[in-house]
Structure formats: structure tokens, C-alpha cells
Design a protein around this nucleic acid. Structure first.
Lengths: 212, 212, 212, 212
DNA sequence: GCATAAACGAGACGGTACGTCAGGTCTTGAA
DNA sequence: TTCAAGACCTGACGTACCGTCTCGTTTATGC
């Protein structure tokens, strides 16, 4: 996730090795700065100071503010996982609440939208976000579907490409609704909302599956 | 929409009046700069130059980059309206496609997410976005429901507060899905997608309404 | 002497005019910084702070450290003038002492040699030094000769090109000896030394003139 | 001249011995860098690279840029010696031309003035320059006087302190004039100039000696 | 019709952060 | 212990843009 600029692939043999503590100190400092100052107020000089590190050390590891914040925010999504609550509906509700809880944290709010905004003009950045943030969320949809199929709540998929489109649709609907409510409407994603949303989603998917 | 800083309330008696062409020239220059440079590359000095205007003229009308971009982007949503395509499903599909078409424009992509990011730490900015962008979209949901009720596709609402919650849910689901697919997944919102999405949404809402 | 970058020649009509106090404040701050820190310790950021001025203001007027220091040091030579002490020997002694007194000041010591060092690789800088520092000293040699001719101490020159060579020789001998004793040998130029030097110089010139 | 930092006193018993080629490689690289980049453009990292040596090796031997350049430039003056051309005047002319030829080399020009500038605030540096550069030049004056006394061109000195003052005066006059013409006036020291200068100097000294 | 007063263009101003670079120190593994 | 390599902290660099200010000029209105 980190280790982007050089050391990828293999180790170089000579010279002083990079400090391993520095990486995590910098990412933690970045999150702290996001909380205190927001995206636009965050400066790399300040992050370096907070991390007890020189600015050059920071630039040696990350190309700029965007890349740094992606990595710092991506770590927040490490804790995201699919709970096993017994039914598909309950699993989805759980994930929605988890996801919303992360999004509601100020370091995520400030950073994520900004970095998405930048990614509209920077393909490498978009790819980085996809890899370290988006795909990690999408994986939950796949896991949820597999688990529901095991439970017999969903039939095994017949046409793979159609199934793929459905996964993408579900992902955009779930993630989109949660993001929009949290960051645009600025309303809380609480249990009642999660239940209402999940009910509409599952009934819609069931209905769409039954009359094709 | 524009004219926020002073002219509120009434006219001033004397002195040279503000140039009316300047406002639109500045907003157009802002959109052009967004296309060329994106949010982070946009500078007010450059906008002023593009508009053939002094920087002071710009600051006399807008407090800063955020407010200017909100106004510049908000104008894009002026063209958004509810088409009458005969059925609720067709109406929704039409709105979804319209909305996606606007979002896909580079001046909207670059600017909108960035200004939303800023709004997470600036309540006045959030309010401004809500007024000039979000509410204008939400109004379409209300209009669509009213039209569907006239057509008999939907029953008249019974409980106003429950109806309000439903409108908010629908709005977050529609806008969220379109925004997420366009700006996060970076996939096109075309007619097949709009149809699939609309079908899931309407079946889900119908199902949720019938088993309360 | 200052006014190098733009405003030379004519005034531009529009825009805020440059602060006139800033120029002198910056030069004075530069001299103070030279005294406190020497050439290598002098930073433009520190000069700006001392002058109560932004760094950009400084860069708007001077291209860099070298040009700034030339102007700051050149001002020291404003006070250099040919005293009328009645005889050529006394005049030369006076000038030598004056010149040495200026060179002995720490702001001159630190700055002048450094800027001469830079000028060996920068023709524009050398020309600037010549104009604002060297020629002003050389003029004293010409004045001194003219005054001595009026007094009858020296014959009017016959061959102009030979006279020119002689002036250059005298100038290099006087300035060189004073500079070398002050800055290289680091010994004081006091009245006895000035008398000894002047005697050798004048006797040598007289001798060279009489046996061609 | 080099080996200042550690090896003082005696040999160390254990460990890898210092590379002897490294010293000369570093000094040569320093001179090359002076020619290519001048004093201000010279960096110790670049010198190390040119010399095929690590930066640490360089710092193990010299305290910094100043000390390194003094040693690098001092080596240029190794070739300076008093030619025996038969007469005092011819000897002086020869030394003047030799000295000027060294000063005219770009590695000397760039480095010498800069290091003199630094020495105005650094006594240790001034002492180092005196030892490795200045005194080596001054010795030529002493040798020249001795040789002229042997030839009978000059009387043996009577008062030692007066003789010492005279040597210093001569040295400042000779070195000062050559340095000033070469580095400040930026004019060539050629044979005609050397002859004119020598004539004025010797006639002046002779005159001053004869009427005290 | 002429003074008033605000808006205008131009651009200098004091700031702040940028991303880079050099100085000098340190930590590694190999010689 | 020295060496090459290279990461490290420090601090200055010169630039860019910020938002404000000070000019001289232009342009509606109101006395």
C-alpha cells in the first residue's frame, strides 16, 4: 500500500535503509492534520513536523499531497469487513453502518472527496484510489453474495457477465447512497435508515431477478 | 445566485454601477479554467485574466475560490428538468441520464467534488451548495412523485413525515448511484444502466410500500 | 544605482507604485545582515524580515543576492571623495585613508570580495560592479591628476593613450595595495603606511616620467 | 597541507587505512568543479561524485567547502618560484607574470576571492590561507631581496624592523596590483604592463631609500 | 453640467506554502 | 577502521498564489 516510489520489487543492497517507523508516523500525522485542518489546510510541511520527520523524507516516499492522503485514508478502510449476522439483509445493514461510520470520521470526509476530485484529472491517482480504497469495498459485495448463495438466499449465478454488471450496480447503489447521505445530504446513517435502504434494495433486486 | 456580497436589499444611489457583463464573463472563465486546469490548477488570477477583468473585481463579488466555483458549477444544473415521458419509470430514466450528462462534463467533475470536500468543514459553503445545487435536484424528485400521483402510478401520501423520509431516501439513492458510478467507478451512465437502475429502484420502492 | 529591473527610463502609468521606502530599508537591512552574518550567512529571507518587507518585494527589485549586495555595498562608496589637502601627496594619502576606512568596515569586507568572486563567472555582475563601485573610485584618480596639473605638480599629458594606461596603472596600484593590505594581509592602513606607500608611488611615477 | 583532521600526531594502529589516491582525486575534482561551476556552483556532493568517492570520505578529511577549496587552490601556487633572470627588475617581472598566470586560471579566480571573502569572518580560515597561499608568495619577496643583495643591487638591510615593513609594503604593492588588475579590472597582465609596473616600483623604492 | 462616489485595470504589497537542493550527519554491509 | 551508498534533518532557495492595498481612470447618477 505504501512503498510506492522505489523499493518496490526488490531491495537495494547498499546505503542506509529507510526508516520503517517513519512511514506509519507520517500517515498518522496526515490523518491528524486532516482532522485538525481539513484537506485544504493540510500542508506537507506541517505533516512532516507532526511526524517528527523532515520534509524531504516525506517527498522521498510520496509524490505529493494527493498520494499521501490516499494512503492515509485508505488505512481507515482496513477495518472494514463483512460481518456474519445470519441473513443477507442483516449483513448488508451491518456493512452499511460500518462504511458510514468510517465516512463520518473527519479525516475521511475531508480527504476522500478531495482526492476523488483530483482523480478526475489524474489517471494514476484514480488507479491508486481504486486499488487501495474502492476495490476493497467492492470485495465485500462479492463476499456477501457468495455467503448468501451458500445460505440459499440467492441462486448461483448463471451468466457471469450479467452477474458482474449486477455486482457493479449493487456496489454503486450501496456505496453511492451511503456517500451521498453522509457527505452531500449531511445526514446521519443510522440503523433505521440502513434498514429502510436495505429493504428497498433487496426487494428491488429480488423483483428485478424474478421478472427479467 | 450571484450577487451575494453587497447588492442585497436594495440599490445604492450613486457611483459607477457594477458591470453586468463581468459576472457572466467571470463564471464562464471559471468553467473554462476548470476544464483546462481542474480545481487544483485553477487560480483566481488566471480566471480574472481569462475574463478580461481585474482580480479586485472578482473579489468584490465572491469571497473566494469555493464560492466562485459553486456559482459557476451551479449554472450547469439550470438545464436540469423533469421530462414528461409518460411513465414514472421513463421520467426517472430521463432525469438520471440528464443528471449523468451534466456530471460527466469536466467542469462539473473537477469542481463539484472539490467544493463538496471543502464544504465538510465550512457550513456556509455547504448551505450555499445545498441551495444552489442540491435542492434543485431534489425538487425533481418531488415533482416526479407529484406527477406520478396525478397519473395514478403512486398513491397520495398519508403520513407527511414518512413521505419526507422516503423522498430523502430516494434522492440519496438516485443521486448517490449516479454520482458514484460517474465519479468513483468512472463508468458511463448509459441507457441500459439507467434502465436497470430504475427497475431495481421502482420495484424496491413498490415492494417496500406494499409490505410495510 | 538601484532601480534596475523595470522602472528605469520611464514610469509606467498604471498599478500601484513601488514603495520608495522599501528600497532603502532593504539596502540598510542588507548592510546590517552583512555585519552580523557575513556574506555566506546572509539570506534573502532574513534581509526581508529585517527590512520589514516580504521576500517577493525583494525579488521584484533585485535578481538575487549578488545584485543586492553590490547595491548595498556601493552605497558605502558614496562618501568617497577627493579631499583638497594642498599637495598631490597629501591628496593621495587622504584618499588612501578614506578608501581603507570604507574597506575596513565589516559590511564592505564581507560583501565586496564575495561579489567580486562571483563576478569572475558573471559578466553582467562584473559590469554592475564596475559601474557602481570601481569607476567611482577610478574617477578620483582622474580628478587628482587634473588637480595636480592645475597646481603645476604634473605636466599636462601629451599622448592620451599613454596617459590612459598610466591612469589604469596608478589605479590598480593604489586600489590593489590598499585592498591587499586590508583584506589579505589583514593589517591596518594607517597614516604611516599611507605616507610610505604614497612616497614610493609618487617617486616611482616621477622617475618613470623622467627617464622614458 | 592536507591531512589535517585526524592523522595528526602519529599513525593509527588498526582498521582499514585511508586511501591515498583519494586525497589527490578529491583536490583534482575540486579544481575541475571550480572550472566548470565556479565557487557558488560547487557542491561537495558533486566533488565527491567526480572523485569517485563517498561524501563521508570527503568530510573525514576536510571540515567543509572552504578548507577544501583552500587546499585545492593552494596546490596551484606550488609551481610559483623565483626565476633567476640576472637582474632584480627582470626577476620581479618574471614573478609578476607567473603570479598573474596562476591568478588568471579559472579555478584560481573563482576560488581564491571567495575563500578570502569567507576568511574575513573566520580566523582559522585566514590562518590557513596565510600558511598555504600568502606566505608562499611573500617568501619570493624575501628571496628576491636576498638575491639582489648578493648581486649588489641592494644594500644589506640595517634596521630589521624597518626592513620588515618594507618587505610587507612591497608585497602588498606587488600582489595587490596584480590581483587588482587581474580580478577587478579584468585586464591582462602582459609583459608591457609588468615592465611598466616594475619600473615604477623599483624607481619608487630606490627614491624612497635615497631620501629617507 | 458638473461634482460625487463607486467600480474599474493594473500591479505592488505582506504572507504562506510549495517542491528542490545542499550541507553535514548517520547507519548500513562490504572490504 | 575505512569505504560507497544512500537515508536522514536542517534550513535556504526562488516561485506561485493568496487576498489586500493603492494608484489613476472611467462611468453613472444627483444636485
Amino acid at each position: 500500500m505504501v512503498a510506492d516510489m522505489q523499493s518496490r520489487g526488490s531491495a537495494h543492497r547498499t546505503g542506509r535503509p529507510r526508516s520503517v517507523e517513519a512511514d506509519e508516523a507520517i500517515l498518522a500525522a496526515t490523518r491528524a492534520a486532516l482532522v485538525d485542518l481539513g484537506w485544504s489546510g493540510l500542508t506537507l510541511g506541517d505533516v512532516a513536523t507532526r511526524a517528527g520527520v523532515a520534509k524531504t523524507t516525506l517527498y522521498r516516499r510520496w509524490a505529493g499531497k494527493n498520494e499521501l492522503v490516499v494512503d492515509a485514508v485508505a488505512a481507515l478502510f482496513d477495518e472494514l469487513e463483512l460481518p456474519d449476522r445470519g441473513t443477507l439483509a442483516a449483513d448488508i445493514e451491518g456493512v452499511v453502518l460500518q462504511f458510514a461510520a468510517i465516512l463520518a470520521r473527519p479525516e475521511a470526509k475531508s480527504g476522500l472527496l478531495a482526492v476523488l476530485a483530483e482523480s478526475t484529472r489524474d489517471d494514476a491517482l484514480r488507479e491508486r484510489i481504486r486499488t487501495s480504497v474502492v476495490d476493497r469495498q467492492k470485495r465485500l459485495v462479492l463476499e456477501g453474495r457468495a455467503r448468501a448463495q451458500v445460505r440459499g438466499e440467492l441462486p448461483p449465478e448463471s451468466d457471469p457477465s450479467s452477474a458482474d454488471r449486477t455486482v457493479n450496480l449493487i456496489f454503486d447503489m450501496v456505496a453511492g447512497a451511503v456517500v451521498h447521505r453522509t457527505l452531500v445530504s449531511a445526514e446521519p446513517v443510522d440503523t433505521p435508515w440502513a434498514q429502510s435502504f436495505t429493504r428497498v434494495l433487496l426487494l428491488g433486486l429480488a423483483g428485478a431477478a424474478s421478472h427479467p
